[in-house]
């Protein structure tokens, strides 16, 4: 937990709404879906009021992952077919792509690299969720997509302090997020978690983003944190958008045990990630959107 007297942390958290606002349409959908009794029509109306967002959501609804035999042509049809939780994840996913398409010099991540890492982690997280028969694989996808969103803020807002983080990391002996904690008193997971909190996302998302490097710190019932933790590591090993810190990460034995992963599972997962990267049409359509 971040010290409540940490001035830099408080300053950054206060700036989140300005630095990384959630578009009004999506915030409305997030807030509406917090109440399970919200009529579906209210969600459709909110989404239809934002044409660009509605188009992106329809693109996602028609991606091969959902496997509808007929094209989903209207938002109201999509909301009925998929339910409002999935629609909410889609709207957030569509927005996250633009947030993550950034170059982060502090982390030695060029524009494509940050995007590729986040997207790869999202795919890998969803593969693990599906393997575990987890009921809300789309939410885990979103967690994977957003797990490093704190890096975008830190790179932008804490440039000077960040040089000290790099210096500390280069001394050796600490992993990159540990160097962040030592110098700043918090890491990019804490900031990412604060972003999700500002966006009024679920407690699971907020906690998973915060603990993705230290899943043992999450509450006992949180399984998704282990999926995102392992997904992040596998994707880093594969070199998908790795920057400062490289593959120098600590694997949680608890995560391996909770997900019951063996060596052959890791190989199969890497295969599936490559298959999905080759076949997934989401990446190309959103980068060009």
């Amino acid at each position: 937990m971040v010290d409540k007297d940490n001035i830099l942390y408080a300053r950054i958290v206060n700036k989140i709404t300005e630095l990384m606002p959630l578009p009004e349409t999506i915030q409305k959908i997030v807030d509406l879906t917090r109440n399970p009794d919200t009529p579906l029509k209210k969600i459709s109306d909110a989404l239809e009021s934002d044409e660009a967002m509605a188009t992106k959501v329809l693109k996602l609804a028609n991606s091969s992952f959902y496997g509808f035999s007929k094209q989903v042509k209207t938002i109201s049809h999509a909301v009925v077919c998929l339910g409002f939780n999935t629609i909410k994840q889609m709207a957030l996913t569509a927005h996250s792509f633009s947030v993550l398409d950034k170059q982060l010099d502090g982390y030695y991540l060029d524009r494509g690299a940050m995007f590729q890492h986040s997207f790869g982690t999202a795919l890998a997280s969803r593969l693990l969720a599906t393997k575990m028969y987890y009921p809300n694989a789309e939410e885990v996808y979103l967690m994977g997509l957003l797990h490093d969103v704190g890096k975008v803020i830190l790179n932008q807002f804490a440039e000077q302090e960040f040089n000290k983080v790099i210096e500390e990391y280069n001394k050796g002996g600490l992993m990159f997020y540990e160097a962040e904690r030592k110098v700043l008193g918090f890491d990019h997971g804490d900031i990412g978690s604060a972003v999700c909190q500002k966006w009024n996302l679920s407690d699971d998302i907020v906690e998973t983003i915060r603990c993705h490097h230290n899943p043992e710190e999450a509450s006992a019932g949180n399984i998704s944190v282990h999926m995102v933790h392992i997904a992040n590591i596998i994707v880093s090993i594969m070199g998908l958008g790795i920057g400062a810190g490289g593959v120098d990460q600590k694997i949680s034995e608890k995560s391996l045990s909770v997900l019951n992963l063996k060596e052959e599972d890791i190989s199969m997962l890497m295969m599936s990630i490559m298959d999905e990267l080759e076949n997934d049409e989401t990446l190309a359509s959103f980068r060009n959107a």
Partner: peptide, 15 residues
Amino acid sequence: AGGANMPSNSIFNIG
């Protein structure tokens, strides 16, 4: 070039 390894876990010494 390449072949980096994660420290501390043999499952991940793919490098």
